[in-house]
Amino acid sequence: MPEVTLVEAVNMALAKAMESDDTVMVMGEDVGINGGVFRATDGLLGRFGARRVRDTPLSEALIAGMSIGLAAQGMRPVAEIQFMGFIHPIIDQVVNHASRLRYRTRGRLTCPMVLRCPFGGGIHAPEHHSESTEAMFAHIPGLRVVIPSSPSRAYGLLLAAIADPDPVVFLEPKRIYRAKRELVEDDGKPIPLDCSFVLRRGEDLTLITWGAMVAETIEASEILAADGVTCDVIDVGILNPLGPNAILDSVSKTGRCVIVHEAPLTGGYGGEIAAQLAEHAMMSLLAPVIRVTGFDSVMPLPKLERHYMPTANRIVSAARKTLAYS
């Protein structure tokens, strides 16, 4: 069983999917001979050839739109958008077409495509390379938004996304692309796209997050554990559609919840989770739900990005605030 990083797990899943299904193809900017700017598609050109691994011109809206045409014809395109700051030209294609092709043709034409994109900050990248606009995509009916936070989840969730009969935006937390290695069996087994992941179990508090923030959130839970506070740590994993059962079960038990995300506060996906808790777990709540997020400012350039992104300390402070309610 290979011990792989998250980005290697992505590569492994792509290769597995291409191996088992001839209609799966990879395209995007620099995905061919260069193997992707993060090497997620490394080696695929050599293994599967230029027919199925295609370098496109620098043309994001086209990449998404062309994927729709391919998918409607029975292909399974897996397209890469290089950075989330560059994903926004595709929103027209995703909102107006990919997410509703099945609906507007009453199932006659479908759109089984995956748009992969590294997202989030913290790697000292240039301007427009560090955005987290997942909430924009989570707002689109007919679409799935999937965010892995470990090598094994990246492998299983990407396989499921590729096999899914509907369009999926697959956001890869690039800050933890190579953060750690994990043993991942290359068994082609998908992880169903309807679950969240309980990473730590505790009694006193529920910490909810996704993507790269899983690292800070677990770190916070460990700091709190030293004080005798035990936490459920939940990685949401699938933002759209949100299956809230694990979240509701946990908060019903703990009565306290802190939601952590890198994206700005206002209109962020944490607001959706907080609203669902208010609606379905009101009587279990012992304290207000607190969000620890990026600020409602522009994602700053590298000099200040560490001040923008949530830290374990900020999460711990928020946790202590909720714990102070009795």
Binding site: M66, P77, H97
Partner: peptide, 29 residues
């Protein structure tokens, strides 16, 4: 839009020009 034939034709596109990329995707397939 679920017309009996031709089953692979696209329905009309309202957002102007946004279906032109679909056509090259269809052609690529």
């Amino acid at each position: 839009n679920d017309f009996a034939r031709p089953r692979q034709d696209f329905p009309v596109c309202i957002p102007v020009a946004s279906h032109i990329p679909h056509a090259v995707g269809v052609a690529l397939a």
